[in-house]
Amino acid sequence: MKVVFAGTPEFAAVALRAIHAAGFEIPLVLTQPDRPAGRGLHLQPSAVKQYAVAHGIPVAQPLSLRLDAKDPQRAQEAQAAHELLCATDYDAMVVAAYGLILPRSTLDIKPCINIHGSLLPRWRGAAPIHRAIESGDHETGVTIMQMEEGLDTGPMLLIERTPIGPQDTTATLHDRLAAMGAGMVVKVLSKMEHDVIEAVPQPEAGVTYAAKIAKEEAALDFTLPARELGRKIRAFNPFPGAHATVNGTVIKLWGAESLDADSAAPSGQVIAADAQHGIVVACGGGALRLTELQKPGGKRLPAAEFIKGFALEGQRFT
């Protein structure tokens, strides 16, 4: 079976490695154009492109796949990509965190399947891992589905579950789901190869949408309950990084645990900052013990180390 792969970040690269290692022929990889990164803002290839190039797999990086794109350059690149796909000998396309919408013209060439990091129909959309943690879900998983024009609405081919632990962050859950999805897509491709797989329509009930994460969401509001703030800190680790301001200094908050004890102190007030109690902040309900922090230009530090170089006693997070 010959598989075209479309994906961009590390989540997708894990699946590409698994498909390649399983012996499926990959005649073409689609990935996003190189992006500026690092202090020098030099163009950097995606994780998927790096793997493809290292293993001699042809790569295409169109700006768009939409033949009706209004921008002439995007329309031209979409036409070239469409012609390339039509000329490529393949049986199915696997899509994982590609970042471009696949139009009907692409979906009609060959069957397309998607690796999605949620238990569909919950958390359709761009940020399912973040939103599952932020919302306090007790479990999540990976769904392999057939693609159609709707946003993550296609019938399901395989679904597997995993619990969300109290210490899970988007980073840890991302890695677990990436490994799960890689193994699952190999199973699905093997079943497709032997024509022994069934597509099951998604339930109509329980649909939710995982909107793309906006950077401004990461600014914490300490009038919210501590449990909610703790989930946000875990959901926004590693991106975009939850933060709050103390005396005009923006502090990144990478780890925390919620405490049930309420305080008469105003929301955001530091009610403890010492080796015995750690850094405890009053919230709209309960209190939050901050466990890992980072000041501008500094390293991520445990609370006990952070307070040695940044005085928080009597201060207030805003």
Rank of each mutant, 00 (worst) to 15 (best):
Q167M: 12
Q167T: 15
Q167H: 14
D168Q: 11
D168E: 15
D168M: 13
T169H: 13
T169R: 11
T170A: 14
T170P: 12
A171M: 13
A171E: 15
T172F: 15
T172P: 13
T172E: 06
L173R: 10
L173C: 00
L173S: 02
L173V: 08
H174D: 14
H174N: 02
H174Q: 13
H174R: 09
H174F: 14
D175Y: 09
D175C: 07
D175I: 08
R176D: 12
R176F: 10
R176K: 15
R176H: 07
L177I: 07
L177S: 07
A178K: 05
A178G: 11
A178S: 12
A178C: 03
A178N: 06
A179L: 01
A179S: 10
M180Q: 10
M180E: 04
G181F: 03
A182C: 10
G183S: 03
M184L: 15
M184P: 06
M184G: 08
V185P: 07
V185M: 01
V185D: 07
V185F: 04
V185E: 05
V185S: 00
V186T: 03
V186N: 07
V186K: 13
V186M: 06
K187I: 02
K187Y: 07
V188I: 00
V188F: 01
V188N: 09
V188H: 06
V188L: 04
V188Q: 08
V188T: 08
L189T: 06
S190R: 04
S190T: 13
S190G: 13
S190C: 01
K191V: 09
K191M: 13
K191N: 01
E193W: 08
H194K: 11
H194I: 06
H194N: 04
D195K: 13
D195Y: 01
D195M: 03
V196S: 15
V196M: 08
V196R: 02
V196Y: 00
I197G: 03
I197P: 00
I197Y: 06
I197Q: 02
A199F: 00
A199Y: 02
V200K: 11
V200Y: 02
V200Q: 13
V200G: 04
P201R: 06
Q202V: 04
Q202P: 05
P203K: 05
P203C: 05
E204S: 13
A205N: 12
A205V: 11
A205W: 03
A205M: 05
G206S: 05
G206M: 07
G206I: 04
V207D: 04
V207H: 01
V207C: 14
V207F: 04
V207Q: 12
V207Y: 03
T208G: 01
T208C: 15
T208I: 10
T208S: 15
T208P: 12
T208Q: 07
Y209Q: 06
Y209C: 04
Y209N: 04
A210G: 00
